[in-house]
């Protein structure tokens, strides 16, 4: 687990990607069973392709979100805090896809005594289709500054400058 200070981060830097897959119908079934999600588009090929006109059974958006959360939470580490994250399920993923969750720093905000870093994030398949565009904000400690409190309360953030 990494320990990152606000000062260590530069705008336009990439964060380490996370890879999953190749995805199989069993991955989808394992998640659906754990979640008790019985929607047939995730396990019934005929229902998915004939009734819903989908290319195949599809990987749950609910599963993909946890890959995005893992990407950013792992980067924030045990001293930072994944404060906000958003993503849209625009593109579908199907069995056979290999997925890369990626992130790039797009902005830094001094919220003394802490820092907030904004990221652009996405989930790309092996063809380069980026079907889950999103963004995230991570709270980081400053060097020699106080630890980010847990549980996190956004009221600890100082006013945004600029």
């Amino acid at each position: 687990m990494t320990t990152i200070c606000f000062e260590d981060v530069e705008v336009s830097q990439d964060i380490p990607s996370l890879f999953k897959g190749p995805m199989t119908t069993a991955h989808i079934m394992r998640w659906s069973a754990a979640m008790e999600n019985w929607h047939p588009i995730h396990f019934d090929w005929r229902f998915a392709t004939e009734q819903h006109k989908l290319p195949d059974v599809i990987v749950n958006g609910s599963w993909k979100q946890h890959v995005m959360l893992q990407l950013v939470a792992d980067w924030a580490g045990e001293t930072g805090w994944l404060w906000k994250i958003r993503f849209q399920f625009r593109g579908m993923n199907v069995p056979g896809d290999t997925l890369e969750a990626w992130g790039r720093v797009v902005a830094k905000h001094d919220r003394h005594p802490f820092g907030v870093v904004d990221l652009q994030i996405g989930l790309k398949n092996q063809k380069g289709d980026d079907g889950t565009p999103g963004s995230a904000s991570v709270v980081l400690p400053k060097r020699n500054g106080p630890a980010v409190p847990y549980p996190f309360d956004p009221r600890v953030l100082g006013p945004q400058k600029g």
């Binding site: 819903h52 906000k84 994250i85 958003r86 993503f87 399920f89 847990y150 549980p151 956004p154």
Partner: peptide, 14 residues
């Protein structure tokens, strides 16, 4: 006829 999940926006506290 169709219901899709368009996405999420989370704010996390603990």
């Amino acid at each position: 006829p169709r219901v899709l999940n368009g996405g999420y926006e989370y704010e996390l506290f603990s």
